[in-house]
């Protein structure tokens, strides 16, 4: 699904050692594979099955997602920042596509 559009909210700056909250949302239908279409056939499953967040190449948080997660999956989690750098977010679709986003943070 090429229309999947990630949106991520990371604070612009933080103090060293602070625990920040990151909010992410990606637009995706998250077709569960349980629904039937108008022709009576089951609509095949297509969901985002993995999400991960890295900071300067180090893993921070990741998820394995099942069809029981709502459409436009929203995730909120925390990260501890000791230095400035880049957060990299990755979503993996059932069809193999990968969506990514990057956000920078300054540490005073």
């Amino acid at each position: 699904m090429a229309s999947a559009k990630p949106r991520v909210k990371v604070p612009k700056s933080a103090s060293a050692g602070e625990v920040i909250t990151i909010k992410t949302l990606i637009s995706h239908t998250m077709e569960s594979g349980q629904r039937k279409g108008s022709d009576g056939n089951v609509i095949p499953r297509q969901i985002i099955n993995k999400f991960s967040c890295e900071f300067n190449g180090q893993p921070v948080f990741s998820c394995d997602i099942e069809p029981a997660v709502s459409a436009n999956p929203y995730l909120e989690f925390t990260a501890k920042v000791n230095e400035g750098g880049t957060f990299k977010f990755t979503w993996v679709d059932d069809d193999g596509s990968v969506y990514t986003d990057e956000q920078n943070i300054d540490v005073k």
Binding site: V60, D64, A79
Partner: peptide, 18 residues
């Protein structure tokens, strides 16, 4: 439903989803 994997870099073990 979902599996959250945390690391020490997460700072806190808290997560929200729908």
């Amino acid at each position: 439903v979902i599996t959250f994997n945390f690391t020490p870099m997460s700072g806190e073990a808290t997560a929200t989803t729908r």
